[in-house]
């Protein structure tokens, strides 16, 4: 499977995650979000960028409970809770934000 956008081809897996992390850019993130009827604002980007940094450091996408805890530590309790994160990413914060961030499916999502 693949996404065609602005003359560029982005290979994806069967669930729509990018096959090659290095192909990722903001355009494809916005495109994937719009397919889910979601418009990415600053608060979404804060989480997506956090996940991308986490992946850069640890080479894994964290499970949602790890993400929640880590966001809470970095950005405060009002953001480090499931209610806030699910309001941004209703399909599941870790899965959906990882997808838009070009990362693989989170490790430890059961």
């Amino acid at each position: 499977m693949a996404i065609e956008l602005n003359g560029k081809t982005y290979e994806t897996d069967e669930e729509g995650y990018l096959a090659d992390l290095s192909q990722w850019d903001e355009e494809v993130a916005n495109h994937m979000a719009s397919e889910d009827d979601c418009e990415l604002g600053d608060e979404h980007w804060e989480v997506i960028n956090f996940l991308r940094e986490y992946y850069e450091e640890y080479q894994i996408a964290p499970a949602v409970r790890i993400l929640t805890k880590a966001i809470g530590k970095k950005m405060g309790k009002d953001k480090g809770n499931s209610k806030y994160l699910y309001s941004l990413f209703p399909y599941g914060p870790a899965k959906q934000a990882c997808k838009y961030g070009g990362l693989p499916k989170p490790t430890g999502c059961v």
């Binding site: 450091e57 640890y58 080479q59 894994i60 964290p62 499970a63 790890i66 805890k69 880590a70 430890g108």
Partner: peptide, 14 residues
């Protein structure tokens, strides 16, 4: 190859 050694650093978070 994929370098997964940094992933051991995430064990504390888990």
């Amino acid at each position: 190859m994929k370098n997964f050694s940094p992933t051991y650093k995430a064990l504390g978070d888990y």
